[in-house]
């Protein structure tokens, strides 16, 4: 590992188009358990074979881009598979619904014992998953798909409802005695982010102003936009950033203005957790995506071995969990270990 790091640093200096293939091996060895071995199939899918002679194979087919969020989900899946002694296939679709449909059909062809899938594009994916259910393969949806899992006939859905997460944030602001919250978005046209702000408006007792600030790629502009919005309205005394980067921008904008603003955020980054630990930010909403990897496998396992269905047909919510000053330090340590 040490050598790898120096080698990669050299590559960065020369800025040659480098093959960053090192990342795969590092991930596979982190959580694989005692005696797992990684091997790649042609689709880039990874098969984790447990040492125990489990003959169940589950497929987790998501729109994962293998970014920081999804790598935590994958670690959750790996841990479940290792704990339960089953075989799991991780198929990241990288936001490509067609790829995901192909992966689903491929899984059925291999005689999968259960499919866990996310539903970024229900129109494309629902028919394919319905086919799986009709053919007798149990399905669990995860992350996105709360509105469609029943139509598919899935056992359950594991994820966070954005609206409910926003509602919970609203309650936090109520408890903090805030009167006017600015809900800042880092993307336009993102339904999930809008639902977070809508949920906030639903439970929050004061005023909510929702606005697009600027993209995460330009934090200077983001900060300036929040600064201008806060300066234009003296009554704003709360800020909810619906992503971690914009939350930090909100904190800097409030600092620049010298305003006492109560700040809440979404998701986890080390800086955000540090700011919570320092008391600059009140809370961040954590959707605990590790569970979104772990629980679907557990559900499929329980169904196949004991015909159990968890949650009575209702979705299983992995969030909103909250990180506040009380637990920020612990979460920070876990986040560095890659499970939060």
């Amino acid at each position: 590992m040490k050598n790898m790091r120096w080698l990669a640093m050299l590559l960065a200096l020369v800025m040659v188009a480098a093959a960053c293939s090192g990342s795969d091996s590092s991930e596979a060895t982190t959580d694989g358990g005692d005696s797992t071995e990684a091997e790649s199939t042609e689709g880039g899918d990874e098969v984790v074979e447990a040492a125990q002679a489990g003959d169940l194979t589950f497929h987790m087919i998501t729109h994962s881009d293998d970014g920081p969020f999804w790598s935590v989900v994958k670690r959750g899946m790996d841990a479940a598979c290792s704990d339960l002694g089953v075989n799991c296939v991780w198929a990241p679709g990288v936001n490509d619904a067609n790829q995901m449909v192909q992966d689903i059909e491929g899984a059925l062809g291999e005689g999968s014992n259960g499919i866990a899938a996310s539903l970024p594009d229900p129109a494309a994916l629902v028919p394919a998953l319905q086919g799986a259910v009709n053919g007798g393969t149990p399905v669990v949806t995860l992350n996105s798909g709360a509105n469609d899992y029943q139509e598919i006939g899935a056992l359950t859905h594991v994820g966070q409802t954005e609206f409910i997460a926003g509602q919970a944030a609203g309650e936090r602001f109520n408890a903090a005695g805030v009167g006017h919250v600015l809900c800042g978005q880092q993307e336009q046209n993102n339904v999930g982010l809008t639902e977070r702000c809508d949920g906030l408006a639903d439970t929050f007792s004061g005023t909510v102003t929702t606005d697009f600030m600027d993209l995460d790629a330009d934090t200077s502009a983001q900060q300036a936009a929040i600064n201008a919005a806060m300066a234009a309205d003296d009554s704003i005394d709360g800020f909810l950033g619906v992503g971690p980067v914009i939350t930090m921008s909100g904190l800097r904008a409030a600092d620049d203005l010298g305003r006492d603003v109560t700040i809440g955020g979404f998701d986890l980054t080390p800086e955000l957790l540090g700011a919570i630990n320092d008391g600059d930010i009140l809370f961040t909403v954590d959707q605990q995506q590790y569970l979104q990897g772990y629980l679907p496998i557990l559900q499929l396992y329980m169904f196949q071995t004991n015909s159990n269905v968890i949650g009575g047909g209702l979705p299983i919510l992995t969030g909103p969990g909250f990180v506040t000053a009380d637990n920020a330090a612990d979460v920070l340590a876990l986040s560095e270990a890659g499970t939060r």
Partner: peptide
């Protein structure tokens, strides 16, 4: 594309995060 990939790849490889501090 190369720079974009290097940023993400190296950040994750070296720090396990998408942001470096």
């Amino acid at each position: 594309f190369i720079l974009r990939g290097l940023k993400l790849g190296l950040s994750k490889l070296l720090t396990g995060q998408i942001s470096v501090t």
